[in-house]
């Protein structure tokens, strides 16, 4: 039930972020200082920010960027993690232990730490965001894929296929992947939630996309200096991100067997 509510909410957010920029008459990046900080009303549904940009349009465009980046990063890490995890599961032996060790090391750098370290040395830009989040992002997915593969690998039909001389690639594609898709999808949803937090956190810290491109974290960080005088430009993207986070978390929770 909650999972469905989350999906509906997520669909709403995606629709808002996707459609608003197409339908809105306003340019999300064009400042118009004469219309700065207008309150919500008929022309600007959520008002304008400190530079007179329509807050609704801007939040939607920023949301599109946030979601796309989170999806891109999660897509890459999931693909990478699945292949590495499944390969290690099939090969067993030393690659098995190597994966476990990589996971232990990754566990030693919690949260944003590795991303911060990489963002601190790479030149800023969209590439840096990807490069900061991918190298440590694949581990949780690999672990799940690994465990699931081991279970599948021990089953009769994989043993049979192996005995018939099937190539590892064939094994991976035809017998393993279909069976580990479920757990991988679960961990991918959880990863999506985590990545969304990470991407926007990097932007919030000023280590994400350079202006005028912005995401929710960047919008919040831009508006924070004026938080005391006018909180709206910070609160609107914050709420948007909170609602999205809630939606994804609901979906994650419903997939979680615990």
């Amino acid at each position: 039930m909650r999972g469905r509510a989350g999906l509906v909410l997520l669909a709403l957010v995606v629709a808002c972020c996707g459609l608003t920029p197409l339908l809105s008459p306003y340019d999300p990046h064009l400042p118009d200082p004469a219309r700065a900080l207008l309150p919500p009303g008929g022309r600007h549904w959520l008002g304008t920010d400190q530079l007179g940009r329509d807050l609704l349009t801007r939040t939607a465009v920023a949301g599109r960027t946030s979601l796309l980046f989170a999806l891109a990063v999660t897509g890459i890490t999931t693909a990478l993690g699945t292949v590495l995890g499944a390969a290690a599961g099939l090969a067993a032996g030393p690659s098995d232990r190597l994966l476990r060790f990589a996971a232990t090391v990754a566990l030693a750098l919690p949260g944003l730490t590795p991303a911060l370290a990489l963002a601190g040395v790479l030149p800023p830009g969209p590439g840096a965001v990807l490069a900061a989040l991918v190298p440590f992002g694949w581990v949780s997915c690999a672990l799940v894929a690994h465990t699931a593969t081991r279970r599948v690998a021990a089953s009769g039909y994989v043993l049979a296929a192996r005995a018939m001389g099937a190539s590892p690639l064939y094994l991976l594609r035809r017998t393993v992947l279909p069976h580990i898709a479920g757990p991988v999808l679960t961990v991918a949803t959880a990863d999506l939630a985590r990545t969304l937090v990470a991407v926007t956190s990097l932007s919030f810290l000023g280590l994400g996309l350079p202006p005028p491109e912005t995401d929710w974290g960047g919008m919040v960080s831009e508006a924070v200096p004026l938080l005391v005088a006018s909180p709206r430009p910070a609160v609107v993207p914050a709420l948007a991100l909170a609602v999205t986070g809630l939606a994804v978390a609901l979906v994650v929770d419903s997939r979680d067997p615990a």
Partner: peptide
């Protein structure tokens, strides 16, 4: 950052 945005525009 705001002034730079306005200059950019």
């Amino acid at each position: 950052t705001d002034i730079a945005e306005v200059l950019r525009a």
